[in-house]
Nucleic acid binder design. Structure first.
Lengths: 353, 353
DNA sequence: CGCGACAATGGGAACGTTCCCATGGAAACA
DNA sequence: TGTTTCCATGGGAACGTTCCCATTGTCGCG
């Protein structure tokens, strides 16, 4: 017993047959019990004599045996793996969501298969297929499209995550409270006497855009202002997109002094455009972001933003996936305001003079 | 045929027995061939009649059948999954590495299991166990410790990634060329007449720190200066750590005008400290980073930095894992200089006056 | 003392696939 | 026409586990 002579394998030709060196049967033989008993010990099943359990555990420890998860999964139907399909793991917001899910999963001994869809339906579809074939126990998905007919009958537990998640009543979801976030953002701006914002928003076909714009309009209406002339500039969900959108706004006849971006990256891009145009933020133009990514902390001025609870989003999504209720639950987590320096805190010039 | 009536499963009790509805045997029956033939078709094996292949594919398409990856993996020994163990997926540098690996993997139909070790040996060990049990085809690892005895005989192909990766001669590795990166960084500084840098570096126990400091000293020596009085301030690999380190430097008697940080986050933290101390960057203090994370783009001033090829790092690591050579290969990818605004380009004041 | 209940265990089937070997037939060659 | 070769196919074993059922022994209780 002890070490086994045949456990070396340095390097792998991809077609090399991998045979597991030690199996549950070897353990059984060494411990003088049946494979059933070993299995019971390893799965913490009831009705095992203390003696047998200890003998088995001792052999397991000495041999360094690890049960083959594949065989276990094949037989039991549970893989201990869940899928996570997000737009882009390199996007700090989604990376944070992933981290939250990872931590929650790690606590329960579950591993996470992460995919980046790049907002591309084809890539997304490929990833879905990969998930299904890997027989994951469930998946957390930020759907690219708003039509989910094809994934509704996935046959595996699903949790939707993100702004558009709540739109599918029969699927559990986790999202941040956009309306509340917009409210506290505009509330803050209002307190500072900032007036109506110009909006920089993302890709038109995503429902997140609609929801953000609608929330802003609702909030403005609530305060008694008209929303007809609201400036809304579309762009890509990136720094570059935000910069381009801001440049277009600056080139237009409208001269807004308050920008509300639907996403921090765009807000930061807008901030760059403002600076490059020779204007100052926040003195000339206030910028409010939406996300709460770490990069906003290091910009100058620091980005004042409405932070989504990204990490908690991921953690709750995972928990929702496992602690399955009877009915689809819809979690909406509140946003928080992070005040840094990109919003003008002094009263507007027109008042100060 | 067409849709199957029994494919519904809404919600999952975790102990519910999951039996696959359609198997290769059903396909065989429907297509009027044997399961062997179906298997051959699905694995693109040779020696299949055109007729049989088409019949099988037709049935597969109509039923929407997907082979069970678990069973396939169990029998063949290949899971089509590789592991990736990095310090933190929420760290933009590592997120980018992960993305590079993901893209490379996606091209070959491989999925990636991502773990965050948080530089914690215990967490790392847990993740290693998870990888082994999941029977991944291989793993890309940024090792927390420099002692790898325990993972050397993992029995699965391994590729090390990161600064300390090359230290293990018998394991293939991918890393960025720190020495060359330091060289182009200091070269740039030298061209601008910046003089000797003060260093802000990370955790002392990581070999990355040693390597960075050594490279800087070597480069300075090469230029004929002494390295004895080089200021080296330790800190955590975070914005906060960089800020704290910079505050300590500012509080000390030395008054450096050029900071070279071993990592962008620390550089950005240092920039904040400089600003908060009422000094200007780059006029009073130049700051040079090392990483090339996107956040450096949106700071003010933009962070001039030596960029590591993060995404390529991940991609090459994956490729190294699959296109296995006989001997362990050590890839070293070059860094590039990104000039933004955090390094003073005008000659020093003492000269200008 | 007999009998049911239950704890502890073993053996075989099952999970869904790939791999190996055997077989039949057609094509190629003498 | 007989023999060899090779293509196409089928059937069973194997992968390493968990699940199910049967068996044994022990205890408690009437």
């Amino acid at each position: 017993m002890g070490t086994f002579p045949w456990k070396h394998r340095i390097g792998m030709a991809s077609s090399m047959k991998k045979r597991q060196d030690t199996t549950i049967i070897d353990i059984a033989r060494l411990a003088g019990v049946s494979k059933s008993t070993v299995s019971r010990v390893l799965t913490d099943a009831p009705n095992i004599s203390k003696d047998a359990r200890e003998r088995v555990l001792e052999v397991v420890r000495q041999t360094g045996f690890r049960p083959n998860h594949l065989a276990r999964s094949l037989r039991s139907g549970n893989t201990g793996i869940v899928g996570l399909v997000i737009p882009d793991i390199a996007n700090p917001f989604w990376a944070d969501v992933a981290r939250g899910a990872q931590d929650a999963a790690s606590d329960k001994g579950t591993s996470i298969l992460i995919f980046s869809s790049d907002w591309d339906p084809d890539r997304e579809a490929r990833h879905f297929r990969a998930l299904l074939q890997a027989r994951v126990d469930g998946a957390i998905i930020n759907p690219v499209r708003d039509s989910l007919e094809d994934i509704a009958d996935f046959g595996i537990p699903l949790v939707l995550i993100g702004s558009s998640a709540g739109r599918f009543a029969d699927l559990p979801s986790v999202g941040s409270n956009i309306e509340q976030g917009v409210a506290i953002g505009l509330d803050h701006a209002n307190t500072l006497g900032l007036g109506l914002p110009a909006l920089i928003v993302g890709d038109a076909e995503r429902s997140a855009r609609l929801r953000f714009v609608a929330a802003v309009k609702a909030e403005i209406s609530l305060r008694g202002s008209a929303t007809d002339n609201l400036i809304v500039e579309d762009g890509h969900y990136t720094v570059e997109g935000g910069r381009a959108a801001m440049e277009r706004i600056l080139a237009s006849s409208s001269k807004p002094t308050f920008i509300f971006a639907a996403n921090d990256l765009m807000a930061l891009g807008a901030m760059q455009a403002v600076r490059e145009a020779g204007l100052r933020c926040p003195e000339d133009i206030s910028i409010l972001g939406f996300d709460g990514i770490p990069a906003g902390e290091v910009s100058a001025p620091g980005l004042t933003t409405v932070a989504k609870p990204s990490r908690q989003l991921g953690a709750h999504a995972f928990n929702l996936l496992t602690e399955k209720r009877q009915t689809a639950e819809h979690l909406t987590l509140p946003c928080t305001l992070i005040e840094r320096g990109s919003v003008r805190t002094a009263p507007p010039l027109s008042c100060a003079i």
